[in-house]
């Protein structure tokens, strides 16, 4: 019997598999297909203070080994999520959920986290300071250690729930940003968000995306994500959730060997809605083949000093 359980800052997960924010809505579409209780948890759609329509369409483009999106944080707003989405989630998901919170200012992050703190269904807050598709204000808080620190400090004051800062890979020194979050009291780090990219339509001679640029996700970004998880997890003492291009049990194991305590699955859900249950089913056999009886024993086994 292989033990798949992991622990994220006191939050027990039956297994490390978490559908990533932005690829899973609030879970309802997948609950039509399978029992969501088999998941470790799921990170719901990035939620902001006010309702947002998001960017104009087209919002989706394709590339070799992945896709670009410029959805722009479409969501019904924090109040509607608390009043409508969370009660709906309770009907089909009976474990603590991960609340993904987005924002345009430090105050907005603080206000949303304060509100979500009151929701007992929420086991962990993932603070998205790295959405690449928001031009209003032009700020990406995870672009600098100072920006990341400012948001972390603000949200730390308003909640006792574990706070995981979701970081952008579009930086020179990811370790410096992660350390700044740790220093301000973050309980963990989620990485990576999407890589900024674009495609051009030959006939129109214009970018495919109405937003011009968008976030690259899918298998193409896996090696980048793996490298950043490996760097950051060795540099901080808090847990890291590995995200980026994971679509198989093998890549989950790689992510954990690189230092991830849990693993989020994003774009793969859009292509194969059953990818998460398939991975969860495949893990025990794969681990047994590696001679491992506790998945948590694999965390960081690929670090330099191991």
């Amino acid at each position: 019997m292989v033990d798949l359980s992991v622990n994220l800052s006191g939050l027990h997960l039956d297994n490390p598999i978490i559908p990533a924010s932005g690829a899973f809505g609030y879970g309802a579409e997948f609950a039509e297909l399978y029992d969501l209780d088999i998941l470790g948890s799921f990170s719901f759609k990035g939620t902001t203070k006010e309702p947002r329509f998001g960017n104009p369409t087209p919002r989706i483009a394709e590339c070799d080994g992945g896709m670009l999106n410029a959805v722009g944080l479409q969501n019904p707003g924090i109040d509607a999520v608390l009043a409508e989405e969370l009660p709906r989630i309770r009907q089909y998901f009976h474990k603590p959920v991960i609340a993904n919170i987005g924002g345009f200012s430090v105050d907005e992050f603080r206000e949303c986290c304060e509100k979500i703190d009151a929701a007992d269904q929420v086991g962990l807050i993932e603070v998205n300071i790295s959405c690449p598709n928001l031009h209003a204000g032009g700020l990406n808080f995870s672009a600098t250690p100072e920006g990341a620190a400012a948001v972390t400090r603000a949200v730390r004051q308003v909640t006792k729930k574990p706070i995981y800062m979701k970081l952008s890979p579009n930086v020179t020194d990811i370790v410096a940003v992660a350390r700044a979050c740790e220093a301000e009291g973050a309980d963990g780090i989620s990485l990576i968000n999407t890589l900024l990219g674009m495609r051009i339509d030959l006939r129109r001679r214009r970018p495919v995306l109405a937003n011009e640029t968008g976030g690259l996700s899918g298998p193409a970004i896996f090696p980048v994500a793996l490298r950043m998880v490996w760097q950051v997890s060795q540099a901080v003492k808090i847990p890291v959730i590995g995200i980026g291009g994971v679509d198989s049990a093998e890549k989950v194991i790689e992510m954990m060997m690189a230092g991830a305590t849990a693993v989020e699955i994003g774009a793969a859900n859009l292509v194969d809605p059953y990818v998460c249950p398939n991975i969860i089913r495949a893990l025990p056999g794969l681990l047994a083949g590696l001679g491992v009886d506790r998945i948590s024993d694999l965390i960081g086994t690929a670090w330099k000093n191991k």
Binding site: E29, F30, F53, R59
Partner: peptide, 22 residues
Amino acid sequence: EERMGCGFGACMGCSCKTKYGT
């Protein structure tokens, strides 16, 4: 018609505005 990500409502890639909301 619209460019879609998932095709089953999860990714919000193909949203449009209507008189009754998004």
